[in-house]
Amino acid sequence: MQTTTSSDGALMVSALAATLEKAMNKALNYDPATQQALARFDNKRLAVKMTQPTLALCFTFTPQGINVNAIHADETHNPTNSPTNSPTNNTADYDAVVTGSARDFIQAANQSQSSMADSGITISGNVAFLSQVQGIAKTIDIDWEDAITQAIGPVAGHGLASAISTAVAASKRNSAFVRNNLHSVLRDELLLVPAQEEINAFCDDVDHIKEQADRLEAKLHAFLHAQK
């Protein structure tokens, strides 16, 4: 049996978990509605196991906030074999387990729909719990103005928050505009890509030429056959 491990790599994951925990709880302080919704989960545990790179974290939702802990691969002993609050490797110890590669998680995060079908992510355990967490995550509304105001004072804070809010709204508006109008600008204004109708007409012309060529070939065959 292995009795010793150099755990500096695992320590990095613990540090990441600590940072995540601190950041999430700090952000939730500015969104009491989400905080209350998560507190209702009453110590439910969600394990997120990432492959490529390997990273496993356990999120426990408590009335005091979210606990984020690293799941360490070589600590599998669970004395009484029942659900624990400290992370273990046993899937049964969690209310839900989400497994996938980093790429899968990034793709799923960017998807607009709730379903994780065809995302490459595997889900086990209480799917309803996971769906509730997902729903809450989508409605997070952090009061950034409050956070900024506390850091730099009410006057400057309000001004900065308003400027950021305006910039974010403009950025969203612009990106939606670009997304909706990019195609027509490329087609109608810059004439860089053909319209669908032009492509269809071109394809019809090609088909027509092909049919005429086939007909000519058949006539040639018939003529040569008659000469013999």
């Binding site: 755990s7 613990s14 600590a18 802990n69 600590e75 624990t84 400290s86």
Partner: peptide, 9 residues
Amino acid sequence: RFTIEVSGV
């Protein structure tokens, strides 16, 4: 923190 994480508590 690591100590807590492997505690099984």
